[in-house]
Design a protein around this nucleic acid. Structure first.
Length: 347
DNA sequence: AACCACTTCAACCGCCTCCTG
DNA sequence: TCAGGAGGCGGTTGAAGTGGT
């Protein structure tokens, strides 16, 4: 378990790099390349460990690094790729020339993630956050919430669910796989599961949150097509605008799904979801080969593995998995074709 | 001007995977 | 086949920057 430090820490400098150190590293790599990071610092006359040198080079000094603010196009790409690949920052970075995994990761955590949360989208699963369906919470905080956040579709969904549950805010919601193993190898839409998570009732006929392929707004990054009547648009900040992503057609059925993603990503995504069976995303949850229900001891796990933030802590969801029925075969991720019952409990 | 809270992001840490002998 | 080492990756940290009071 574990491994020895990459190098002897004694006498090695840590912390921010000085311009002199940068220059030494750049000069050395330009002359000799970076064949062996372990021996590089010694050869370059740097009191750093090889790992630190590699990081400094790949994240900062590399000549092909693009600096500056992320463009909307880049942001849109990141969100799309993240919805498929999850926190595979290096895989995402590989498709964004000039951007490093570290930079993308930081940008995600400081900008995109918060923006998705404000939009009512879980940044982990890329699905609408069910905890936002707490109508009373929405209404109580209405004064502090920007009117654009009051998605009428969410409100409608909340009303329907609450009425069907007699006002009980413990949601027992059925999710359905839209998966056909027979088409898995030929139809890219068979992957990944989270694109097909669909709340069966009562939203089957709900329009997409974002109108797909709206050519009028391809580059405009408009507000979601929520009702914006009466909103003083001039008061909105850039943070209130969202890229128009057709990958957020959570409420559409398979035949509405748009093939925006490079098919080469999908095999990677498949690998991701097969290997991350501990990742309690919707994808993993819906991969269960069994039907989850009550009447057994349960394991309660935070659906969002990251620590709570100001946006999340007020209303956290827990995901209860009966121990006796927890899935064991991660290979079933792509399998199924059945419905599962997942109990969501507000805590 | 001083203080505090919050945000950003470069850098580090520890684990994992792959390669090689 | 296995062990050890190197590189890679994702999560986390903390210093610096920024904005509000």
């Amino acid at each position: 378990m574990g491994r020895a430090p990459c190098c002897d820490k004694n006498g090695l400098k840590k912390g921010p790099w000085t311009p002199e150190e940068d220059q030494k590293l750049v000069d050395y790599i330009q002359k000799h390349g970076y064949g062996n990071w372990r021996t590089l610092p010694k050869n370059a006359g740097l009191q750093r460990c090889g790992k630190s040198c590699r990081l400094r080079w790949t994240n900062y000094l590399r000549p092909d690094i693009k600096r500056g603010r992320f463009s909307f196009e880049e942001e849109e790409t990141i969100i799309q790729l993240h919805s498929i690949l999850g926190n595979k920052w290096s895989a995402i970075a590989a498709r964004l020339p000039g951007r490093t995994d570290n930079e993308i990761k930081n940008y995600w955590n400081t900008h995109i993630r918060k923006r998705l949360l404000r939009m009512g989208i879980d940044p982990v699963t890329h699905t609408p956050r069910l905890d936002l369906l707490d109508l009373s919470s929405i209404l109580i905080h209405n004064n502090s919430m920007h009117p654009v956040m009051l998605n009428p579709h969410l409100l409608k969904l909340a009303s329907s669910i609450i009425s069907s549950n007699n006002g009980n805010l413990d949601f027992t919601t059925t999710y359905q796989h839209h998966h056909d193993p027979q088409i898995q190898n030929q139809n890219p839409t068979s992957l990944p599961q989270q694109h097909f998570v669909q709340i069966q009732e009562p939203v089957n006929n709900m329009p997409p949150l974002i109108e797909p392929n709206n050519s009028d707004n391809v580059n405009a990054y408009p507000l979601n097509n929520w009702d914006t009547n009466g909103i003083d648009l001039s008061s909105l900040t850039e943070e209130d605008y969202v890229p128009q992503l057709s990958s957020y057609d959570y409420y559409t059925s398979d035949n509405h799904h748009h093939h925006l993603i490079d098919p080469s990503l999908l095999s990677e995504a498949s690998t991701t979801f097969h290997s991350n069976n501990n990742n309690l995303s919707f994808a993993a949850a819906s991969s269960s080969p069994t039907t989850l229900n009550s009447n057994s001891t349960t394991t309660t796990t935070h659906i969002n593995g990251s620590s709570s933030t100001e946006d999340e802590s007020d209303s956290m969801l827990r995901f209860e998995i009966p121990d006796a029925e927890r899935w064991e075969d991660a290979g079933e991720v792509a399998g199924g074709g059945k419905s599962e019952h997942v109990k969501w409990t507000r805590v």
